[in-house]
Design a protein around this nucleic acid. Structure first.
Lengths: 145, 145
DNA sequence: ATGTTAATGCAATTATGTTGCAAATATAAC
DNA sequence: GTTATATTTGCAACATAATTGCATTAACAT
């Protein structure tokens, strides 16, 4: 079985991106976490390993290529998670539910949960659905209550 | 039938807020529009009638009291709409669908659309649902296509 | 009319996001 | 391995957005 770094290198090459330290580091961090990661957190963890501007550009490039997707939390802060299979530069397919924990503030991508079909008023044409649920995650609901 | 200004004055008093010009103006603007209103737009319309900081504070106070609710658009910009009945300082009840038009970028609160129940993984406790649909609104879909 | 509290406006500060450009680095060709 | 080329990075400057403290002003109860 190949290790993470090899996987990530392939992923970068596949998308026409060069194998650079900041890019690999971002992929390592995002993949090591079970929930979406906020930009401020990334900034903090990367510290002086990468410039703030570089982080912006790495995230932007990844999003454009369909490697990661962005979720905004309640405060409007950008959070990022690695895309499931099927996303590409051309189109994202991340129409899963994002669960926002009120306690630990983690954002979970609930890939297994399907968004139900929606009846909208006449004339409206729905292209994409973005469902954000808030409450307590499995971890916190066992501890808090 | 009472006019808007009277209604708004009552609304403010009911929530323990003083009847001031900037507050009344914000309520006038929000209620005159059929979709949620962005903070930048409010800022522009209010012009020199109110300081930018005042606007922030008015919006914050209104949101806390349950007079208006905030919706973030795709870019993370805050948009505001007057709450339906039933919202209070203690709790918001705005679990309707927010429709984001890709063409005119208006945000509609589709009060009539009910968000379907959701099956989440074991342990997760859903408190609130926030469903954002994107696509074309009734107005634009008749013009664009 | 007057006093008290809340709200506003201004100035200063901090945080966040963007752009241009020179230096550094990845990678392909030799 | 060296060299050439294009990409990527880091820095600096800039632009925009949000926050805080405080003195002044305005609302409203008495």
């Amino acid at each position: 079985m190949e290790n993470n770094t090899e996987r990530f290198e392939k992923l970068l090459v596949k998308n026409g991106l060069k194998r650079t330290a900041p890019r690999l580091q971002v992929l390592e961090i995002l993949s090591s976490r079970d929930s979406a990661t906020s930009q401020p957190y990334l900034e903090q963890v990367m510290g002086k390993d990468a410039d703030r501007v570089t982080l912006y550009r790495v995230l932007q490039a990844f999003e454009e290529k369909g490697i990661i997707h962005k979720v905004l939390d309640q405060q409007g802060t950008a959070n990022y998670a690695i895309c499931s299979e099927g996303c590409s530069a051309h189109e994202h397919h991340d129409e899963h539910v994002h669960f926002n924990c009120d306690n630990c503030h983690k954002i979970y991508c609930l890939d297994s949960v399907k968004i139900p079909a929606l009846k909208v008023p006449a004339g409206f044409k729905v292209e994409h659905l973005n469902l954000i649920a808030t409450g307590l995650c499995a971890n916190c609901s066992s501890k808090v209550n």
